[in-house]
Amino acid sequence: MSWTTVADVAAAVCLLLGSVLALLAAVGVLRMPDLLSRMHAATKPQVLGTVLVMAGVGLRLRDPGIVGLLMLVVLLQMAASVVSSHMIGRASFRAGQVRHDLLVVDELSEVREHDEPRGAP
């Protein structure tokens, strides 16, 4: 078994696993009860799925020129998912779109009563 065969098999495994994770993320977005839980499903398995798919693509193409681009995709995906999940979560919490019955502990609603003005850093 040559080196390229091993790389191809590894690429196939990475692509499949990544796709499964992306599918699970989609199922999670459908099944979760409220927006904040959905953001979990939409960020974490999704990011790892992207990482695995990019690894698979890199292993299959085996082109040094493409590796930098793939790493850039992963980095930007991580940064974007962090920022977007935070912004959406924050907006939904401020708009009151929270299922309080699902929360065991809620330390943010307690402080929000006597709060800093909106937009404060």
Partner: peptide, 17 residues
């Protein structure tokens, strides 16, 4: 998260400072 997505039991959350 994948495990939480797949199981049937409803999920309980928390907001922690």
């Amino acid at each position: 998260v994948a495990a939480v997505v797949l199981r049937r039991r409803p999920v309980r959350n928390a907001v922690v400072a």
